[in-house]
């Protein structure tokens, strides 16, 4: 699993950091979300799905790859 953050939509709500703090952080310059990892570790996939759904700006896109355990 990979994720992307749309910089035009993200406004730094921070819900992604609440649900998946090992994957997302808010940046030091403008407070928008940044990725801490390029590839989502399998044990973080549920947290990332929560984060994607919890983003009020719908700024997170999940890219599922072949063989992923997440539907």
């Amino acid at each position: 699993m990979k994720v992307t953050i749309d910089p035009d939509r993200c406004v730094g709500q921070g819900m992604c950091v609440l649900y998946a703090p090992k994957v997302f952080q808010l940046g030091d310059e403008d407070g928008r979300a940044e990725l801490l990892v390029a590839q989502i570790p399998p044990e973080q996939e549920d947290a990332v799905i929560q984060a994607e759904r919890a983003c009020p700006e719908q700024a997170i896109t999940i890219i599922r790859e072949k063989g992923s355990i997440v539907p």
Binding site: V11, Y19, Q50, R53, A54, E57
Partner: peptide
């Protein structure tokens, strides 16, 4: 699960002090 509330607003004017509030 996935609490996508907009208590801090939404869009470009998202409450600048949200991290302070939390």
């Amino acid at each position: 699960e996935s609490n996508r509330h907009v208590a801090f607003g939404s869009g470009i004017h998202r409450c600048i002090g949200s991290t302070f509030a939390r």
